[in-house]
């Protein structure tokens, strides 16, 4: 008799732990050919609430780390992704239906994207900060600071490169995130969460919910302790995006709007994804003896 393999239970990732959904619900995940792959946890609004609490709790510590430290922690994620190549390639082939070669390339891009963003940790301030020559005897400096807790709606199609490209620019500057993964392609996100759990990323900095953006995102968009929301992942869904933007106005969240179609994630991302979630702080001090 051949051996029966042990299947993995795919769970949520909240505050560094892997709970099942508080609701007890799950949903079936299929590969691109329609074959059953696994059941994923179906996150509820209470899971979203718990994730926000975890993200807020982690914010002080994460934003307070030195930029060099955050850079190394992001780089470490890339190292661990390299380590788990076969598993990630398998996940990509399953969820995106890629050939082995294309899956390898998507993974290369995702790892390289992380390395690229890791390096920004201690450079963005130098590029977008300013000493301001005010007309008076004052030292005046403007520097970017993290916005706070950011809700990220991950891309629906690009389940790993898109996911990494959405999360890395937000956390590298010191924000913490609550991510809603691709609904139909959630498993690479769970694997990514498992990599985060074994990396040096403190619990609560990245929280990943598998499930439906249409169901959970409104709770995040209206949550008064969430400071910003990235809608890029629901590209094309104008109606949902508009309603989320309206809800986000309740506490004036910073909103990164959804484009008409999902971007080409292999293109040079530029600074936008980082600068959308930083606040410029300007400090004045007199100069005298």
């Amino acid at each position: 008799m051949s051996r029966i393999d042990v299947r993995k239970t795919y769970k949520l990732f909240i505050g560094g732990a892997f709970p099942r959904s508080e609701s007890g619900y799950s949903y079936q995940v299929h590969d691109t050919k329609g074959a059953f792959v696994a059941n994923a946890a179906l996150a509820s609004r209470k899971d979203a609430r718990d994730a926000v609490v975890a993200a807020r709790k982690a914010f002080g510590g994460w934003s307070g780390k030195t930029a060099y430290n955050r850079a190394q922690i992001l780089y470490r994620i890339a190292e661990l992704m390299e380590d788990r190549r076969p598993q990630l390639v398998q996940a990509l082939r399953q969820s995106e239906g890629l050939t082995a070669a294309r899956a390898e390339r998507a993974l290369d891009d995702a790892i390289d994207r992380l390395v690229w963003y890791a390096g920004w940790a201690d450079k963005l301030t130098q590029v977008i900060g300013n000493a301001n020559p005010v007309a008076g005897p004052y030292f005046n400096l403007s520097t970017p600071e993290p916005t706070g807790v950011v809700a990220v709606l991950a891309p629906q199609e690009s389940s790993l490169l898109g996911l990494v490209s959405a999360i890395a620019p937000v956390i590298v500057t010191g924000n913490t995130v609550v991510v809603i993964s691709s609904f139909e392609r959630p498993l690479p996100a769970v694997t990514f969460a498992e990599i985060l759990a074994t990396s040096d990323v403190p619990g609560g900095v990245v929280n990943i919910l598998t499930g439906s953006a249409a169901t959970i995102a409104p709770w995040l968009a209206s949550h008064m302790d969430v400071n910003a929301i990235d809608l890029v992942g629901i590209a094309g869904d104008t109606e949902l995006a508009t309603s989320l933007e309206v809800a986000a106005a309740d506490n004036l969240k910073r909103v990164r709007r959804a484009p008409a179609a999902e971007p080409d994630w292999s293109a040079d991302p530029g600074l936008d994804a980082m600068t959308a979630f930083v606040e410029t702080k300007t400090v004045w001090h007199p100069m005298g003896v």
Partner: peptide, 14 residues
């Protein structure tokens, strides 16, 4: 943040 001063404004200062 105004340190040891307050309500200072300048065109160069965001």
């Amino acid at each position: 943040v105004w340190a040891n001063t307050f309500n200072k404004f300048d065109p160069t200062s965001p």
